[in-house]
Design a binder for these strands. Sequence first.
DNA 1: CGCAATTTTGCGCACCGCGCATCTTCTGTA
DNA 2: TACAGAAGATGCGCGGTGCGCAAAATTGCG
Lengths: 202, 202
Amino acid sequence: MSTAARREPAGPGLRERKKRATRTALSLAALRLAAERGWAAVRVEDIAAEAGVSPRTFNNYFSSKEEAVMASGADRAERVREELAARPPEEPLWDALTHAFAAALAEPSFDPATVLRARLALTHSQLAAEQVRFEARMAAILATEIARRTGTDAERDLYPRLAATLAFTTCRLTFEHWVRGGGDTPAADAVRRAMRRVRVDP
Amino acid sequence: MSTAARREPAGPGLRERKKRATRTALSLAALRLAAERGWAAVRVEDIAAEAGVSPRTFNNYFSSKEEAVMASGADRAERVREELAARPPEEPLWDALTHAFAAALAEPSFDPATVLRARLALTHSQLAAEQVRFEARMAAILATEIARRTGTDAERDLYPRLAATLAFTTCRLTFEHWVRGGGDTPAADAVRRAMRRVRVDP
DNA sequence: CGCAATTTTGCGCACCGCGCATCTTCTGTA
DNA sequence: TACAGAAGATGCGCGGTGCGCAAAATTGCG
């Protein structure tokens, strides 16, 4: 590569990159081990070994293995936020949400890990609970985006959080149903269809 | 009381009654201790002592303190199911759900423990997750009731579970919002208003 | 009363979450 | 480049948890 480093005014340094790498490594390791040998047979020690860090380090990133597994869904949730922000402001909110959630499940970048997480959540309610806990954090972020769009207050008004949470819940239930059904048709279509049947008025 | 025991053909015997008593005692003890000294300062050992049983017995009923706290909401959830079953069959589903959930929060039998659980769930996301896990079980039951009403299949169709879960979620978010706001107006009214803004078509 | 079924309890073990001290690695500056 | 301070990784240890197992206590029934 050329001698001159590119100008990256706020580019994350090595430290930050390593941190992110370790985090995703731990999360994916947890997911892989769970898929291989079953959730009950996965110990924190195993996850740490799989990711090449000490067991103590695991707890610097996650405070439970449940948290570790579900954290790998952050990318998808982040993409929902981006897609929503990219929708035209005059578009009705629920339509925009429908597009955003469907886009996050669209084909080209579809992540098979999402199916694994859904399968695990279906069979282990503790993981399902952790998934919802994770979604609640994402919904809070999405709520601020919704509040900005609709001119409401994410703190004082019920609407933004309600719309965000119901959208997440609809998407999750639809996806679970899609997984249960075998997943032959595109998941995004199923989500679009389900979202159209749900309405949340301001 | 009269010497002759009443005829209770399927009435729960002493054994079953004691079991239920122990279960609710443990659950309420957990809730009381959490309200008194804060969730972090409650150990399983304390809950067991408060309920007058051995620590080992606690785990015969609940596999975590989180589960114990939220289990005391079972009565309310059961009441929702009963109220829904009591609604006229020709009533639109979502209206029936609205009435059922509002009735479960109606004044005369309003249980202050519900507010305590909501407060705890607001400040401790682990408890919120457990609350959702609990609601998921209740939603599955409610879904069969909905399936019967709407002539759908609780297993194969998405609709019953979706409607049940969205109703529970709407009710929970509204109640949390109500608690956050101080809770001066009747909670049932807030739930009714929120439910009217949400629609789930079959 | 006495037996069978069920529940409670004590004990023990593997695992977990995390505070603390220490060591290693990275980053900004001269 | 050299270096000092910052930040992350690691080892250690402790209190707490979840649960299997077997003995003891309690309840139901004839």
